[in-house]
Amino acid sequence: MIEFRSVSKTYQDGTAAVEDFSLEIPARRITVLVGSSGSGKTTVMRMINRMVDPTSGTVEIDGVDVATREPVQLRRGIGYIMQNSGLLPHRSVLDNITTVPRLTGVSKADARRRAFELMEVVGLERSLADRYPSQLSGGQQQRVGVARGLAVDPNILLMDEPFSAVDPIVRDELQQEVLRIQAELAKTIVFVSHDIDEAFLLGDQVVVLERGGHIVQQGTPTEILANPATDFVATFIGAERGKRRLVVSDSTPAIGDDRVLVDGGGYPVGIIAAPGGRLEAGNPNPKSRSVSNKTDQAGDA
């Protein structure tokens, strides 16, 4: 578990990026920090691995204040995956994945064997091992970034908008990859995003931030959708007029008891069964997210 206790961060130039931030991040779950640009998401996340030290307050991992940990050692035990993959441009794919294990003294042979395993886990062909990052597509680079983050088998993975620079189809694939990896490896994942769809898809817990790192709302996607805490949240998630405000279309009859649902913009988004005019109830807690609204579109391309 990661715990923030009244954490504030004021940068040297006087910017109060985060003010009095408190949050519990449960172990082995995905917590998504979501909010608009400049709301302090990255600052919050970087306080976990001491890339940023809080001005006041404490950050604890399993009850141990990170301020007492030596930063370099701390970081080697936490996977970090960032927007532009952050790969070393002068190192091959394989060397990028093995770099942290090598720093911690794992033998070259062991590190390579593990790297090949991880390439498989994240869906990279072995033949790419000797390429340089600039010889990969953006999506492949991100996969290498994920493999590198997993290389030391960390308990915690920090992911800072890792997929925002890749095209939507690749992003869908990578999001599914994260869910699959999480189902297999059960890491504590802190994921930063400014995309509410991504947050709702990935997050067991979603934390909506406003400027200054103020938590406007936190909860499961269902809780947030059911009860947006403020107008800001309602607008942000599109619950008022956006694509999450759905109505049954009268004008279009569908087969049998089915009705067509349209979103706030009038676009059809799905079908709902309404036997005898009553809407069907379902379980809002997905056991597996393998059925996402996007996978089908993305196909297995």
Binding site: R46, R76, M82
Partner: peptide
């Protein structure tokens, strides 16, 4: 590139290792 340096730091390079590597 600043982001490469920062990324190397985030994954656990010490200052010396980062300089030479």
């Amino acid at each position: 590139p600043h982001d490469v340096v920062s990324s190397a730091t985030s994954i656990g390079y010490s200052a010396w290792q980062r300089f030479f590597a």
